[in-house]
Structure formats: structure tokens, C-alpha cells
Computed example of a mutant assay.
Amino acid sequence: MDARQLEYFLAVVDHDGFSRAAARLHIAQPSLSQAIAALERDLGVKLFHRLGRGVVLSDAGAELIEPARQVIRDLEAARATMDSTKGLRRGRVEMVSMPSPGIEPLGTLTRDFSRRHPGLSIRVDAAFTATEVVERVRQGAAELGLAGAPEVLSPPGVNVLPLEAQDFVLVEPPDDESSAFSDDEPVSGADLAGARAIVTPEDSVMRRIVDDVLAEGTDIHIVAEVAHRTSILPLVLHGVGLAILPESWSTLARRSGARVRRLTPAPQLHVALVSRVAPLTPAARAFLAVADDYAASRTHPEHGRSGRGGVGGRGHAFFPLEVL
């Protein structure tokens, strides 16, 4: 068994079959099939069940995924460490993030990281729950992940760097003449009686907030339920209804003409950067150092930014969310 065989195995897993994996690896499909067959002979187990022209992962194959990713990550870390002896001039951070953290704090973190290490790059894949982020990091699919939850994150099997606790806000259509709220007036759940709301699917944090208000007897009409988080603000701007969003969207919403109100009491999310326990590549360690400085500045604003300082000229008005 060698690293190349493990890389080929993971490619078949990640791309749902031999043909797409071969295309991604830029090799002929028969060569890929031969490599996987050799790996199966070496291990003495079948990693895939062949079904017609397709394949299904076997139980043994499922057990191999996490250690295979660990081996590949460790080799990458070793190569990157050798490169770093010549100076941290190249490399890439492999991350995963949920939608709202993809606005902030990822924007500020990436800006600071790029300024410190202009030769390095970042690749960010998408996830939609804290559990998904943690699993991707734990299994080695990414070295780092941005996650958010209603409580402080403390999942096993990964390292956790808390970044900040953040509020939800109410976002209303621009020039909404029906709004009964002044610009600076905080809005309670009872104040939303008769409102038309845009929500995300059940089991999301934002939907949970709306459902809690409904459970208290406030009549809110859910006019739209959308899975695509990026669709919410455009729907608000079209006047379809209001939405409860993480404050990460506030600056963009205001710049687009929407009205943003504070909620009282304000539900919060706790946002953290999770990292794998195994040794990180030098690029990932460099990004983690930037995140550590960011977290320190949020805890001790006198060390750098103000408590809500940052991108956008209005202070740091961007805050991430686990699931909108």
C-alpha cells in the first residue's frame, strides 16, 4: 500500500465513481481500476462493490476513509514543512465554512492572512451545519473549519478556537411603510405580530427563533421558506417579507437599502475555528495564528480593533451563523 493508491481510493470516494475520479486525476480509467484492485489485494478486502457500471463503498472501504485522509494530510504537512524551511512563500490552506461565516469572519481573517503571507492561498469548501464542519475536519477532508452554534462549541476529536459570540438581527425591506419600528428601536418577538417572514427550513437556527416566537402566540405569516441562504436577502429587498439573519449580513443589507433592527432579547451564536488534532501544514498554522490574534482582539479590543471594529467602515458588523 502506498500514498498514491490511497489518493486514488479517496478520489473514487469523493467523486462517486471511477470515471469521474479518473478524469479528476488525469489518468486513464483502466489504470485507476488496476491501482484500486492492487490496493484491495494488498489489504485483503473489497473496498467497493461493483454494481453494473457503478460502484458502492463497502463497509471496509468506509472504515478506510478517515485513516487514508490522515495519511495524505500528514504527507502534505511533511512536504509543506520541508518547503517552509525555505521560507513560508507558498502553500494553500484547506478550509470548510458555513454560509454566513463565508462573509465574516472569513473576510477579515483572509484579508489579514493575505497581508501577512501574500504567497499563500486559501481554498474554502461549503458546509451547512456545525456537525458537518467538524466531521470534515475530523476526517481530514479539511484542516480548518468555521462553525457556529447556539452554545459554545466543544466537539471531541478536533481543536476549537472560540472567535466571538454574535447577535441575530431583523432585516426589513427598504422603505417598508408598514414597519412600526424606528431605526434604533429594538424589536421583541411580540412586536412581530402580523409580519410576513422569510425563513430557512426546519431545524435551522434562524427557523428555530421564528418557531419560538410562534410558540409564544405571536402570529407570523411564513411567506417563503428557502434552502438557499443567499436567496434570503434578495427576497427581503424585493419586499417579499422580513427575515431574522445573523449580523454578518447587516452591512451588506444596509448598503443594499434594507433596514436592520436589533432584537430583544438578542439570540446569540458562538463562532469558532476548528482544526484537526494531527499536525497542521505550515500554511494552516499561519492561518490559525491570524485567527488567534482575531479572537484576542475580540476579547481584548484595546489590543487592536474595537470590540466591533473591522471591515466595512461601520465597525465589524459581520457575524457568522451555524445554519441560517
Rank of each mutant, 00 (worst) to 15 (best):
E7T: 03
E7G: 05
V12S: 02
D14N: 15
R20E: 13
A22D: 04
R24N: 04
I27E: 01
I27N: 01
A28H: 08
I36Y: 01
D42S: 13
L51V: 08
G52T: 05
G54Y: 03
G54V: 10
V56K: 15
L57C: 03
L57S: 06
L57D: 00
D59T: 03
A62D: 14
A62C: 00
P67R: 09
A68I: 00
Q70R: 14
E76S: 01
A78V: 01
R79V: 00
T81I: 02
S84K: 08
K86W: 00
K86T: 12
R90I: 00
E94Q: 14
E94D: 14
E94L: 09
M95A: 06
M98E: 11
P101F: 04
I103N: 03
G107H: 11
H117R: 12
E132W: 05
V134T: 12
V137N: 03
E143Y: 05
P150T: 06
P150H: 02
P156Q: 09
N159M: 12
P162K: 14
L163W: 10
D167M: 12
F168S: 04
V171D: 10
P174C: 14
P174I: 14
D176F: 08
E177C: 06
S179T: 13
S182I: 03
E185C: 11
P186L: 08
G189A: 11
A190S: 15
D191L: 13
A193Y: 09
A197E: 05
I198V: 13
V199T: 14
S204G: 01
R207S: 08
R208Y: 02
D212P: 01
V213D: 00
E216T: 08
G217T: 04
V226Y: 10
T230A: 15
T230V: 03
V236K: 11
L237F: 02
I244L: 09
L245W: 05
L252M: 13
T264S: 15
P267K: 05
R276F: 06
T281Y: 10
P282Q: 12
A284N: 11
F287K: 11
A289F: 00
A291C: 12
D293H: 05
D293G: 10
D293F: 02
Y294S: 06
R298C: 03
S306P: 09
S306M: 11
G307T: 08
G315I: 04
G315E: 05
G315Y: 12
F319L: 07
